[in-house]
Nucleic acid binder design. Sequence first.
DNA 1: CTGCAATGTCATCATTTGTTTACTTGTCGC
DNA 2: GCGACAAGTAAACAAATGATGACATTGCAG
Lengths: 200, 200
Amino acid sequence: MTDPTQPRRRDAGRTRQILLEAARTRFARDGYAATTVRDIAEEAGVNVALINRYFTSKEGLFEACLTTAVTDVRKDENGVPVDGIAEGIARRVGGSFDDDRLRVALLLLLRSSGDDRVDDLRRSVLHAVSEKLAIAAGGAEPDDAALLRAQIVLATTLGIVTLRSSLGLQPLTSATEEQLLGPLRDLVQAVLPGGHPPHR
Amino acid sequence: MTDPTQPRRRDAGRTRQILLEAARTRFARDGYAATTVRDIAEEAGVNVALINRYFTSKEGLFEACLTTAVTDVRKDENGVPVDGIAEGIARRVGGSFDDDRLRVALLLLLRSSGDDRVDDLRRSVLHAVSEKLAIAAGGAEPDDAALLRAQIVLATTLGIVTLRSSLGLQPLTSATEEQLLGPLRDLVQAVLPGGHPPHR
DNA sequence: CTGCAATGTCATCATTTGTTTACTTGTCGC
DNA sequence: GCGACAAGTAAACAAATGATGACATTGCAG
């Protein structure tokens, strides 16, 4: 009675991936504590016990999600041209749906499970991102002032993603990539060194 | 055996306030789901059952917290001069400890309990803030483009508060109000109308 | 085909969490 | 003082949650 057209098999790696995917979206959207393992299992269409089988615990699953998010962000960093920082941010926060994975990754970096070690990971990744940003804008090894400016731009990016995805604030949420580009260009040019002279 | 020097009395209003205060900080720091009523009661030094007595439920307590946050934000809006927007933001996100109440209020506006009605409140308040900001910058009734720019500045503000309080990202977290002022002045002047010409 | 390891399911457990109920203690008008 | 009501306490409950172990099923090596 089983459908022979479907190549459905018992594949541990596949269900592991499905679980990871479901967990990523739920953790990113609702946060760690508000997401139950049963929620994740149901969204994945998978038995609850498999979470503990493949990831030891809810904590372990969250850490695995964060690891994939870190990978996504790191991979994305490499595609950043020295110029076009504003364009990159606009695409990342407002881009089409197929870029949604990166937005989920960014949201995940804002979620905490309470585990100190995992929090250190989040912090270090965001710090690395701001460094890359500062270098892309300024060139050389950035000092604290340049890093601070880069982190302010990063704060803008994360703030926009948050307000769009979890608040639905209008018109920000409906703004297209093109509509975001103008303001973001002004912002990046003014805040990061390399544009207009920073101090008057 | 009770200490007569202490004017300690059974004061319903007082314990209600203590509960509210404790709940505000916990909800703002850890989020709704991650905060238990027992946590709040312990931090307040008060019996758990009193939460339900005075606020009906955990939801009710959260709503009360949000109401105080809304009041704080609304009150703060009035003190905003038409110029000095950047100065205001710098003071709000990086100001001395006695201004901490407003930062807690801003964080609370980012926390969700899952209740749609309360979420509408959060949304409407943030929308009102961005409107005030757009008007302070542009003068007249803002169109969508001006509103969008104001909301981007708001996103920056909320992003900075988040990265400082819940991530401890350095050097952003240690930056003083004065150190934040420069970049924020550049940012506000470039993003909001009224500074340099917005489109080149 | 057959055994056996891998994969998945089911039932259940111990805690935690929000809430309620019955009770005790303090406060204040009289 | 005293009694009635307000304020606070303690115990307990039901539901939810993360986790576990025994059992079933699949699929592949031999």
